[in-house]
Structure formats: structure tokens, C-alpha cells
Nucleic acid binder design. Structure first.
Length: 816
RNA sequence: GCCGGGAUGGCGGAACUGGUAGACGCGCCGGAUUCAAAAUCCGGUUUCCGAGAGGAAGUGGGGGUUCGAUUCCCCCUCCCGGCACCA
């Protein structure tokens, strides 16, 4: 009787071995080819969830696979430790955010260890530690000196009852989540980083990033949203200041029948001062949250301001409106409206009885009815006076030239991308290193006074930031003039921490430099794995920060992540597993019941890594069963004593068959791991090979040699996914050296050779027969064999064969 | 609303470059083993017609290109992610 598979014993032994021999601690070795394998680090929410297990397992598979390819692999782990949940927990349980966070980190680290990931724990980074965030404070002060940060007013969600700023997530159906009060938009001064200064570089480099998925690159391109247009100014009757608008369609200029400004636009504010009606409307516009999705989906509302602009070409009056869908944050906060050729303008014009004018006609001469709907395609100008008959490009240039010559406008490149607002009116974040002085204005904290340490031992009530109630924190001397001054109490957006942590893993212990020589060895990250939900913000901010660090002379690297895998979400009941939704599954129970290898195997087998995975408790059992079969197959084989080496020349047909299957599987799994990142099919292939071994009923010495080779291959190739059981089985197969650094198996091409191959025969594209043909048969020989088949004859009988298509090694299609 | 992705048996999925639709697993059905159960092992399992050989239909819906479409093109539906203060 063989030893049954006992995951708890097997896994503890493997983990103890890895820990005792410090296998995963790496230092810089220029003689070796490095491979930096990284996972998006977790927020320490309290417990691991299945989404964590999925992403960490994918990354661990990469790391272990690359190690077997002979690479010098770094895989670190850390904690994205600042954020709102710690504040919420503090309110609910009365525990300071710092204490809650550190406890969670300790719990989650233990859970991670139990999953057997190949982490170098000596490099652990925790972003809420001053020794970490001091460097982003330092970088911010450097950016300040270069003019890459600035302060301006910006809109936030304001809860008028709790008197506090709300995150978009805290606004539910336009109301504050705790107070239930209607949320308002409010303008407050905030700090911004000039990511738009890097817009072109961030955009252009996407064309040279073959290691990123096209979907992510497309999303980033669209997010940056570079457009070429014209900025034009319209004179406003009775105003000194002209009204400036940006448009990508100057060709439609003659079709402008009204203009609209944002509620926050100075012109709207000015009119509101003398009109109770407009003032009420402007106020109403503010009673909404600040999320773009809300603005884009809400009912389009507007009111005429009773003021007219003057059309720069015709001199006609163009009525001005104030509208709730115009964004102050995009372009100039004002738009020219062309209802004939813009869907939103058309709907608005229809609703408010504004005239609709056709000025573009389809280039192919098709008639259109502008009263039925907007015509938005580019075409030929009509009803446009001297511009009639011009196409888009000609009209664009003619009109742009005219405005440039008359000094009333200019060609402009506009970006949808906005500068990054990094101020948060919250406590649990890295303090923004700025001091406000009445004489010297905003002064960055000098380098020798960094870090600005966040006090951790605080009373946290949830109403406002406790920093505002701590004179010992904010009462300071101006670093410039020495007078009484006030420290900034806002903290950084937590995306700031996650925009550079990947580089700090190279040198987390350096107290004197943000990055040192070790970062030059390890960066960029070779394989980055994380959720698709980070496709834009985190990944774009990181690309931006990498360039800031480069331009500060800290690194030569421009792109932080060479290869990116965006793993799909783990869904439960059709939506993203998240603590907020309360639909999480606890991996701990499963690990205790089946072991880490079963959980790892299931996560990798259940779906392709890039696709969403709908969680189901079924199937984990199946993975466990497979591991038991795997265990028994190897143990039973090994129990019969050592197997001889394969002598390929002395195998019978059945033995050759199994050996062929082994090498086909090696080829398949190598491709799945190395090129496709298709781990679910790799597991399926390994299962097939093991099934073939179990069905193989031959205990001769030659057969045992072939079986041994097959089992060793399965152990090696599954080891990145199920490292513990593989570690044990490798020893059972008679090896003294650890599996971890064993080379990946190689395909023996001679084992793949085959005398006869199977082909299918179609008649008119429908499968009619399967035939065996010699592997060296030429096209006509294959055709002849296909035609000879009885069933094929039935279907071509009485018809003329018009064409025969032969796809070598696959099929024959006879067209009649 | 805008941007990106997805939809294939009862279920998760496979089919990689336009070439055998349903690999592998789950579930289910039948059998073996067992005093019995669990576990394990063997066989079957897209639907419909047929005793069988075989045939027909079939990849969210509608159209198109092609000798051949899950794969390419057009239109539509539904689901998921993101939309700048959730991380």
C-alpha cells in the first residue's frame, strides 16, 4: 500500500525547505540574466481573497518557470497600505488606521506564506512607513522646483451635512453614503502633477510596447485622447473678454447656432449675479456628484443666458446658453454647438427649439435630412459661403488659416488627459510636503526636514481629517523666512505610492537615496501581472512616474513594465469580488481542506488568465482528485524500483506511442508557458499525458523507462503551478537535487516522428471521412486516397468535381 | 453616455495563423468494488432522426466575404471592467 497524498505534510516540508535554504532571496549578479517578475501589490484589507490568489499564482508560475529557464529571478511582495478602508475600519471599530493596517499586513503575510509563493521577503515594502513615503515627498519637492506641480481650484464632492469631501465611491445615487444628504460639487484648491507635459511621450511610446495587450494600449491611447483642432474666439456682445472655444471640427463653423458654457464658467457666474433664474440654475447644476459617468448620463439641461456671441464669419448673433453637460475641466469650459453635425447638440437643439442648420453633405452625393438626425461624418461643405465644396482637410486649413491670420484663433493640440490631482482631504495617506506662509506663499519642505511624518496615534472620528485638529502637526515655521506658517494637511492620492514601488523593491533599505545602483540592475520589470481594472490609471501614472524618476537622473529606464498580463477579475454572482460588495470567498478554508496546491491548480485551470473567472465552489474537488491521481501514479511507479534510461531504438509501437505523447506534451506546455501564457490548456495537456500513463498497461523494463520519462516531465512542467507536490514527487523519482533549479524538459524531435498521419476529407466543406495517409505522401497521392473512400464516393457520385483543396497534414476538401 | 473586453453542451472552458466544433475538467447516467457508505476504478454523455452504418442542425441574434467562418467584415442584443477621490 502506498502513502496517501497528504497535502499538509507535503506542503509544510517543501515550504520549510525553501525557507531554510533561502531559495528566493536574490542579490544582483551581473553575470546572470535577470528576470524581474512582479504582481500588483495588494491593499491590506484584512484577508486574502480569490482575486489575490489568482493574480499571485499567475505571477508565481511565471517566476518559477523563468527560474527553470535559467534566469536570475526576483519576485518581491509588499503592501499598498494607505487608503480609505483603514479610515472606515477606524470609524467602525475605534482602532487607529495604522494599527488596523499593520495587523492586517501580519495576517495576510501569514496567509501568503501558506500558499508557497517564491517571494524574496527581505525586500518587503510597506507604503505607509515613513522610510518609504519620504521618497515620494522628496520627489514632489523636486517636481515643485521644476514647475511640474502646481495648485489650482478643482471640483470635489461635498457632503453638506457631514461637512466633508466624499470619494466618488462614497456617493450613492447622488447622496452621501453616511448622511444621505444630496451631494454638491464644490471647488477647493488642490495640488496637481503635470502629467499632460508627458502626454505625447506616453502616447507615442505605446506604439513600441509589444509586450502589452492591445486592449490596454488602446484604452490608454483613448484616455490620453490627443486631438488636433482649432481654438477660436467669439466676441460677446457687451463683454470685453471674447469667449474662447476649442473644436476639432472647424469645418462645421457655419453651422453654429448656439454656444454653451459650464455652470462654473466666469460668464455664467457673471450673468447669475444679476439674474435670480440663472443663479438658481447654476446652483442646481452644482447639485450633482463630480463623476464623469454621472455628467454624461444625466438629463441634458440648459438655460439661455440672454447674452449673444457674434459669429466670427457672418457677424450674426449666436445665443449663449449655460448647460449642465459642459465640463469646466475639459478645453475652455465652453463649446460651440453645431446641432446639424453633432448628436448631443442635435438632441439639445431639438429639445429647446434651437435652429438646426446643415453645412456638411455626404461626399458621395447622398441626400440626407438633417431634421431626422445629426450627420456626423466628414464630408463636403455646403451653405458655407466661400468655403462651399471644400472637403474636411481643405476646410479645416482654410478656416484655421483665416483665424490665425486675423489673430482670433490658432491651431491647437488638445488632450482629453487632465493633469493629475494628487490632493486628498484625508488622514490616512502620505502628507504633502508643503508649508504655507503668508509672505512666501507655498514653500516645499526642505530636503533635510523630510520626511513629513504622519502621526499614527490619533483619535479618528471620521468627520474631517484629524490632522486639521493637531496644531502640533500643522503649526510650523516657514522654511524660507522663519515666520509663523501652516503645514499642508492634505495627503497624497494613494496612486502616488503605487506609481513607483516597483522600482523601490530593488533597494528598499537605502536610507539615503530613492533608487540606487541595484535598481539599474533589476528594472524594468520583465513581467507585470495585475487586474484589468488598473488598465488606465495605475498603469498610466506609473509610466508617468518612471519618466519623472528618469528625468531626475535616478534611472535610464523610461517604460517600467516590459510585459504586461492583465488578469481577468474573479467574479462572484456576476460581479467583481470586493470587500465593499461583501461577495468574497475565503481561500483559507479551501487551503485547510485541500492544500495550497489544489487551490493554485484550480485557479490556473478554471479559466484563461486574461478572462474573467466566475467563481464556483465546484471544480476544486476535481483539482484535488487530479493531484491524488498524480501522487499515486508517481508513488506506485517509484515503488517498483528504479527505472532504466530510455533506449529509443528498442521500443515497441505502444512504447513509442507513449513517448511521442510525452514529447508532444512537452512541446505543447512549453509553448503554453513561454509564448501564450495559457496555463489552463497547459494543465489540460498535463492531465492528458497522465491519463495516457495510467492507461498504459506495460510493466516491461523498456515501458518503465518510457513511463519514468513521462512522469518526470509532468512533475517538472506542473511544478510552477503546484510546487509543493512536485517538490516531493521529484524526490520520489530518485533525485537528490532540488526541483526548483532543475532545467525545463526538452523536446526530442525524433520522438515526434510518425509514419502515418490522420487527415479528414470534406465534400463541399462537410466532413465525410477520415483517412490515414503516409506522412510523406504528396498532394496527388492524398487526393487519390481521399477520392477512394467509400463515403466520399457516395457524396461525389453523379457530380462534377470542380476543385480540390488540400491543407497538408490536415484536410482535403472536394468541391462538387 | 464614452472607451475596452466578453457571449461556444447541463456548467467552467478547448479549437493558437480561416481548415475535424466541444480537448481537459465539473456535473449527470450506467457498471465494478463494498455488509453499507465515502473514496477509487471502468464506460457513456451537444441536440434531433436512425437498430446501426450514417444523416441533419448547431458557437448570443441578423446579414456578408470564402471551397470552408467560433475565427474576418457590417448591424444589433445582453453581460463585465474603466470613466480621473475604491484599490
Amino acid at each position: 500500500m502506498s502513502t496517501p497524498y497528504q497535502p499538509d505534510i507535503v506542503e509544510k516540508a517543501a515550504q520549510d525547505y525553501w525557507a531554510d535554504s533561502r531559495c528566493f532571496e536574490v542579490s544582483e549578479d551581473p553575470s546572470k540574466e535577470k528576470f524581474y517578475c512582479l504582481t500588483m501589490f495588494p491593499y491590506p484589507s484584512g484577508k486574502l481573497h480569490m482575486g489575490h490568489v489568482r493574480v499571485f499564482t499567475i505571477s508565481d508560475v511565471f517566476a518559477r518557470y523563468q527560474r527553470m529557464q535559467g534566469k536570475h529571478v526576483l519576485q518581491p511582495m509588499g503592501w499598498d497600505a494607505f487608503g480609505m478602508p483603514a479610515e472606515n475600519a477606524a470609524i467602525q471599530r475605534g482602532v487607529p488606521p495604522a494599527q488596523w493596517t499593520y495587523n492586517n499586513i501580519d495576517d495576510m503575510r501569514d496567509q501568503l506564506r501558506r500558499l508557497g509563493y517564491a517571494y524574496d521577503w527581505t525586500r518587503e515594502v510597506t507604503t505607509c512607513r515613513p522610510e518609504y513615503y519620504r521618497w515620494e515627498q522628496w520627489l514632489f519637492t523636486r517636481m515643485f522646483k521644476k514647475g511640474l506641480v502646481y495648485r489650482k481650484n478643482s471640483i470635489v464632492n461635498w457632503d453638506p451635512v457631514d461637512q466633508t469631501v466624499l470619494a466618488n465611491e462614497q456617493v450613492i445615487d447622488g447622496r452621501g453614503w453616511r448622511s444621505d444628504a444630496l451631494v454638491e460639487r464644490r471647488e477647493i484648491p488642490q495640488w496637481f502633477m503635470k502629467i499632460t507635459a508627458y502626454a505625447d511621450e506616453l502616447l507615442d511610446e505605446l506604439d513600441r510596447m509589444p509586450g502589452w495587450p492591445d486592449s490596454v494600449k488602446t484604452m490608454q491611447r483613448n484616455w490620453i485622447g490627443r486631438s488636433e483642432g482649432v481654438e477660436l474666439s467669439f466676441d460677446v456682445a457687451g463683454e470685453d473678454e471674447p469667449l474662447s472655444v476649442y473644436t476639432t471640427r472647424p469645418d462645421t463653423l457655419m453651422g453654429v447656432t448656439y454656444m454653451a458654457v459650464a455652470a462654473e464658467h466666469p460668464l455664467a457666474k457673471k450673468v447669475a449675479a444679476n439674474s435670480a433664474e440663472i443663479a438658481a440654475f447654476v446652483e442646481e447644476c452644482k447639485k450633482t456628484d463630480a463623476a464623469e459617468a454621472t455628467l454624461e448620463t444625466m438629463e441634458k439641461k440648459g438655460m439661455p443666458l440672454g447674452v449673444s456671441a457674434i459669429h466670427p464669419l457672418t457677424g450674426e448673433d449666436v445665443p449663449l446658453w449655460v448647460a449642465n453637460f459642459v465640463l469646466m475641466s475639459y478645453g475652455t469650459g465652453a463649446v460651440m454647438a453645431v446641432p446639424g453635425h453633432d448628436v448631443r447638440d442635435w438632441e439639445f437643439a431639438r429639445k429647446h427649439g434651437v435652429p438646426i442648420k446643415q453645412v456638411i453633405a455626404p461626399a458621395d452625393g447622398t441626400a440626407i435630412d438633417i431634421e431626422e438626425g445629426a450627420f456626423v461624418d466628414k464630408g463636403v461643405l455646403v451653405n458655407s459661403g466661400k468655403y462651399d465644396g471644400l472637403d474636411f482637410d481643405a476646410a479645416f486649413n482654410a478656416i484655421a488659416d483665416y483665424f490665425e491670420q486675423t489673430g482670433r484663433g490658432r491651431r491647437t493640440i488638445n488632450y482629453r488627459l487632465r493633469d493629475w490631482g494628487v490632493s486628498r482631504q484625508r488622514y490616512w495617506g502620505a502628507p504633502i510636503p508643503i508649508i504655507y506662509c503668508d509672505t512666501c506663499d507655498a514653500v516645499p519642505v526642505p530636503e533635510d526636514q523630510l520626511p513629513v511624518v504622519l502621526p499614527e496615534n490619533v483619535e479618528f472620528t471620521g468627520v474631517g481629517s484629524p490632522l486639521r485638529d493637531m496644531p502640533e502637526f500643522y503649526e510650523v515655521e516657514c522654511p524660507k523666512c522663519g515666520k509663523e506658517a501652516r503645514r499642508e494637511t492634505d495627503t497624497f492620492d494613494t496612486f502616488v505610492e503605487s506609481s513607483w514601488y516597483f522600482a523601490r523593491y530593488a533597494c528598499p533599505d537605502n536610507p539615503d537615496l530613492m533608487l540606487d545602483e541595484r535598481a539599474r540592475y533589476w528594472t524594468p520589470v520583465d513581467q507585470y501581472t495585475g487586474g484589468i481594472e488598473h488598465a488606465i490609471l495605475h498603469l498610466l501614472y506609473s509610466r508617468f512616474f518612471q519618466r519623472i524618476m528618469r528625468d531626475e537622473g535616478l534611472t535610464d529606464v523610461s517604460e517600467p513594465f516590459t510585459n504586461l498580463l492583465t488578469q481577468g477579475m474573479v467574479l462572484k454572482d456576476g460581479s467583481k469580488m470586493s470587500k465593499a460588495k461583501g461577495n468574497t470567498v475565503d481561500p483559507q478554508e479551501l487551503i485547510e481542506k485541500y492544500g495550497a496546491d489544489t487551490v493554485r491548480l484550480f485557479m490556473m485551470f478554471a479559466a484563461p488568465p486574461e478572462q474573467a473567472l466566475e467563481w464556483s465552489d465546484e471544480g476544486v474537488q476535481g483539482s484535488f482528485r487530479f493531484l491524488k491521481r498524480f501522487w499515486n501514479a508517481v508513488i506506485d511507479h517509484a515503488a517498483a524500483g528504479p527505472a532504466p534510461a530510455v533506449d529509443a531504438a528498442k521500443l515497441d509501437e505502444g512504447q513509442q506511442g507513449l513517448r511521442r505523447k510525452t514529447h508532444q506534451t512537452i512541446a505543447k506546455i512549453s509553448d503554453d508557458f513561454g509564448r501564450r501564457s495559457s496555463f489552463n490548456t497547459a494543465v489540460a495537456a498535463a492531465m492528458e499525458l497522465l491519463n495516457a500513463v495510467n492507461r498504459f498497461d506495460d510493466e516491461t523494463e523498456a515501458a518503465r523507462a518510457v513511463k519514468h520519462e513521462a512522469l518526470e516531465s509532468v512533475v517538472l512542467m506542473l511544478s510552477p503551478i503546484v510546487p509543493h507536490i512536485s517538490h516531493a514527487l521529484w524526490q520520489e523519482l530518485g533525485h537528490d537535487t532540488p526541483l526548483l533549479d532543475q532545467a525545463w524538459p526538452q523536446v526530442d524531435a525524433s520522438a515526434l516522428e510518425l509514419d502515418l498521419i490522420q487527415m479528414v476529407v470534406q465534400v463541399n466543406g462537410k466532413l465525410r471521412a477520415r483517412i490515414s495517409v503516409p506522412s510523406d505522401a504528396d498532394k496527388s497521392a492524398v487526393e487519390e486516397l481521399a477520392m477512394a473512400d467509400e463515403n466520399v464516393q457516395r457524396f461525389i457520385d453523379g457530380h462534377q468535381v470542380r476543385k480540390t483543396i488540400v491543407v497538408p497534414g490536415r484536410l482535403v476538401n472536394i468541391v462538387v
